[in-house]
Structures are given as C-alpha cells and as structure tokens.
C-alpha cells in the first residue's frame, strides 16, 4: 500500500556514475540541461541522445526504471506533440482536415520537442537513481556555500538540515499514516466509498492525528538535538568529506566534449 511509494528513487548498485561526486553530478546535470536546450537541430540533439544513452548504460540501472519515469509524464509528451504537429506551417503540406494542416515542418518540430522532453526527464532520473537523498542534500549544501560570502551562511546550513530532516521523516510519517488509517478503520471509518465530498470528509480523522503527531515529532526532535548541543552549523565538521577524484574531472571533460559538439553542429548546420 502506502509503503510501496518509493521516495528518492535511489537504485542501489555500484557503477562509475554512482561513485561520482554528487556535486559534480548536479553541476553536470545543469550543463547537460542547458545544452539540450541550446541544440537547434536534430544533429545536436542526437549527439546529446548518444551521450545520455552511454550514461544510462554506465549506470547499470535497468532501462525499465527509466521507462517507468517516462510513462508518468506521457500525457504531457502527447499533448505537446499534438499541439506542435499542427502549429508549424513550414514545409510540404501532407494533408488537411478542416482548418488543420499537417506539414513536414510540423512533424519535424513535434518529434524534436518530444525528444527534448524525453531527454530532460531521463537525465533528471539519472541523478536521482544514482545518488542517495543524503548525498544530494550534502552536495546542495556545499554548492550553495558561496552564499555565505553575502551573509547567508546560516541560511545555507538551515536549508540543508531541513531537507535532510524532511527526507528522514518521510518513511516515519508513512508508517504513522498507515497506523492511524487502520485505527480509524477499526472504528468503522469508510475510506473507500462515497462521493468526492464524503471522501474528503472521511480524511479528517486521519489528517488531524497525523498533523498532531508531526508537531510532536518536531518538538521531540528539536529537544533531542538541543540535548546533543546542536547550535546550527557553527563549528560542525563532516565525517564523510566530499573529495574530487580523477573520474570526476574526467567526466567533466567528456561532458564538455559532447556539449561543445552541440555548439559546433549549431554553427555548421
């Protein structure tokens, strides 16, 4: 039931991509995003497709999982494809229904945009499949650390701590929700039947206890943290220091080679 919801979709295995520094992964993700958008023609996009295919194969994550992610945004892909099919008026008219004209230019554009969306989603899932949520928050904290020069030092630490705590408590709250649901079902709560308003009303006996227990958790956690002398980020050191290895530098170089070829194709064609 609720337990089936996977959060942070980390897929445990040991690949080159898994071992990369999470900071590098986030930065390269941004770079790849930018160049996917910069590509103006099919040549550039195909280069990126090739690059991403290689990455997917390197992650050792089953392709099935990437397809599952794509499935969830399939409606969006279909919608944009349909709109773009009839939007462009370039090229040869293939056929005409009422006021809608299907042209070769339209088909080209629709396929191009669909491919772009698919690539964006897949690259995004590469990051979440190969990086644990904790590594991600760590990396975000480190990447945002330059903000301390403009007086936002506390902000960066607090943000990272909040993300870590939020991630930590998701399984706890799911478990709690299940318990409360069972308890109210035992008192005859009807969660499965009724119209939309009845169903929303039936959720109140679950949401209120859940809210109260979340607040209780928050107080307890705050007290426990204070008992262990937590005082914000001041003077805290890390057990696991993030260090860049040769593979990290190498991956940057490879990524830049592919990305710059997009620019080359843009200029040539």
């Amino acid at each position: 039931m609720l337990k089936d919801i996977t959060f942070g979709q980390y897929y445990r295995c040991n690949s080159i991509i898994h071992r990369l520094d999470p900071r590098i992964k986030i930065l390269l993700l941004i770079v790849v995003f930018i160049f996917i958008f910069l590509a103006q023609g099919f040549a550039g996009l195909l280069v990126m497709t090739l690059f991403i295919t290689i990455i997917i194969l390197l992650t050792k994550v089953p392709i099935k999982l990437f397809l599952k992610n794509l499935k969830s945004i399939l409606p969006i892909i279909i919608f944009t494809t349909l709109i773009n099919l009839f939007y462009s008026k370039d090229g040869i008219v293939l056929f005409e229904i009422w006021k809608l004209k299907l042209t070769t230019g339209g088909v080209e554009r629709a396929v191009f945009l669909a491919l772009r969306i698919i690539l964006l989603i897949i690259v995004g899932s590469v990051l979440t499949y190969t990086t644990t949520p904790n590594d991600l928050t760590d990396a975000i904290e480190r990447l945002l650390s330059p903000l301390k020069f403009i007086g936002l030092k506390r902000f960066v630490h607090v943000l990272a701590m909040m993300m870590t705590i939020a991630l930590r408590f998701i399984p706890t709250l799911i478990e709690e929700t299940e318990k409360i649901m069972n308890a109210q079902k035992a008192r005859g709560a009807n969660l499965e039947e009724g119209n939309i308003f009845e169903r929303i009303k039936a959720l109140i006996p679950i949401l209120i206890p859940l809210l109260i227990s979340s607040v209780r958790h928050a107080y307890e956690l705050a007290e426990a943290m204070e008992c262990r002398c937590y005082n914000g980020g001041e003077g805290r050191v890390r057990m696991k220091k993030l260090r860049l290895h040769i593979s990290d530098y190498l991956s940057c170089v490879v990524c830049l080679i592919f990305s710059s070829s997009v620019v080359v194709f843009n200029i040539l064609i």
Partner: peptide, 20 residues
Amino acid sequence: IRHIRSKVGLVFQYPEYQLF
C-alpha cells in the same frame, strides 16, 4: 467487512494518538 469491524472492536497500541 465494515460490519465485522463494529462487532469485533480493535483498540490499537497507544490509541490516544487516534483522537481527533
């Protein structure tokens, strides 16, 4: 099955957390 639940009542552990 809901009818059974009023005939076989179940009080969970720490039932005070279900008050709302």
